[in-house]
Design a binder for these strands. Sequence first.
DNA 1: GTGAAAGCGCTAACAG
DNA 2: CTGTTAGCGCTTTCAC
Lengths: 332, 332
Amino acid sequence: MTAERTERVTIRHVAHNAGVSVATVSRVFAGSNSVSEELTSRVLDAARDLGYTPHAVAQSLASGRTRVVGVLVPNLANPYFYALIKHMLHEADRDGYRLIVADSDESLAAEPALGMSLLGRSDGLVLLSPRCNAEVLTELSRQGKPITVVNRQIDELGLSSVLVDNFTAMRKLAQHTIDLGHRRLVYLQGPARSWQERERWRAMRTIRAPGVSVTPVRAGGTMEDGHAAVPRILAADCTAVLAHNDLTAIGVIAGLQERGLSVPQDMSVTGFDDIPFARFTNPALTTVHSPQEEIGRAAWRITAGMLHGDRPGARTLLTTEPVIRASTAPLM
Amino acid sequence: MTAERTERVTIRHVAHNAGVSVATVSRVFAGSNSVSEELTSRVLDAARDLGYTPHAVAQSLASGRTRVVGVLVPNLANPYFYALIKHMLHEADRDGYRLIVADSDESLAAEPALGMSLLGRSDGLVLLSPRCNAEVLTELSRQGKPITVVNRQIDELGLSSVLVDNFTAMRKLAQHTIDLGHRRLVYLQGPARSWQERERWRAMRTIRAPGVSVTPVRAGGTMEDGHAAVPRILAADCTAVLAHNDLTAIGVIAGLQERGLSVPQDMSVTGFDDIPFARFTNPALTTVHSPQEEIGRAAWRITAGMLHGDRPGARTLLTTEPVIRASTAPLM
DNA sequence: GTGAAAGCGCTAACAG
DNA sequence: CTGTTAGCGCTTTCAC
């Protein structure tokens, strides 16, 4: 067994070895059923003998389809996004599509370029919680490829989207803390350009129970952001803090505990998203279960539909519910 | 402003509008400095007016380079891998490369196909903690493209690799628990086909202090795996458990706490990797800091080198150190 | 059912 | 420095 010269085996070699035309080989690999069994097996044999693999790039150029769709995420370090993508991956896979994902790292400025770059190598794009403005979305959609927007409401452009009703869930979660007797609440604000943040904060501002106050504290979307906000939370003199998401809630809990405070006895804390870690924190986190599986599935179904010719503009609205665990308790 | 007909703007249109040849346009976009300023600006103007974007797929087919490299991960739900990739991403980006990542979901069977699929659309491949056997690696390398293997030692094939000395770090971590007075240790085993697991377990088997016993308990690599192993850990009647990684350690701690045991008073627990969550758990996790940043950087440097013609076979060996936090304490 | 041939949009010799 | 031209490997009419 010697080292092989690695000159690429092309469709032409296969055609030649099988004694057929390149068109026939192409048809066989495309799964066309209009090729006789006889020729099909000759082609397959030749291909196997030669170790032929179709050249994906050439296929894409000739057919105009890449069978790839791009996914742009603001921050893959957040397990929420990852869980969502994992479900999309599965759905896409069974339809014969691959996903390529890029992470904008919460950089608003990076989104347009990354989006364009993904679109250049794919047949469509899924934007998860995009932070960019309408102009960028317009620019992206001008490429003429299907675009699905998740967790971001944009009415003007006729883009397809899947949304989760953050507003109602956040209200319910706030109500839960109020029912526990809390009156002085802090809401820990997340990433500024996030639609989900806007919805959650909007929900908090509607809280109008007697004697209840809601103080906003700016933070961000990471554990570090939550951790760093603890002094400001303490300064607000509250008994419950509702964080933008699970990550910041985890940071808050750690910061509180470092100062000798205990959760939930001294302070109730809630998150949002229900990432896998939420069950395993100490105390287990009260949060909102965002239906990552359904979102992923819906996003793919909509995208796949457009890939097959559906017109854009489809909307899916999902609902969520709070999950009460151990990080919230009655006011003592 | 009306809706545009979306016939793709090609290099030919730009050439025509700028009154130059397609070669010149190609050169301008390739950043060649052998084009006069005069023509360069005419080309750029025409391109802007027409809204021209080079067709990535066509560029790849013609040039034989995709400027993309694939990354295959066993499980992106583990923040360890994500952190590592994020650093590679940065390095690759500044060299003008994009990364496409696929997740094998701990499925040994999926690795060959995913690896091939990635290679088909890229100029090279980075395998993170691959579980597959040498044959598969051989098959992959037969494609003639650069392959870099991370966290997996394979001596025969001349593949490039970056390794971390898991063995020594694991020994130090075990010694730490022994120094604290622990004598009955449990080692929680991770994914069976993982090289890192083999190294860590190998380290544990060398522990030969007087009166010290190490009991292996099979688990896996996720929080759920760690959580599910708790009854078996308890049955082993130990005072310290060294988990394969941080994720399983987190699962163990949660399981212990649910049973009313406290960490580290009733049981010391350690992880491995030092994922971002490790600082924020309660108690903060004693673990080994795996140098994700250096690994990512090294993996990219080696890959980039081969992309520029370096011969394969480069080796990088990195070291790690335990990080003592609050989940381990002296035996009471 | 099968083959011939014309591209897909771009790059890279090769001339000039 | 710039233009001409021959492909990259495959898909897809269009005939037969």
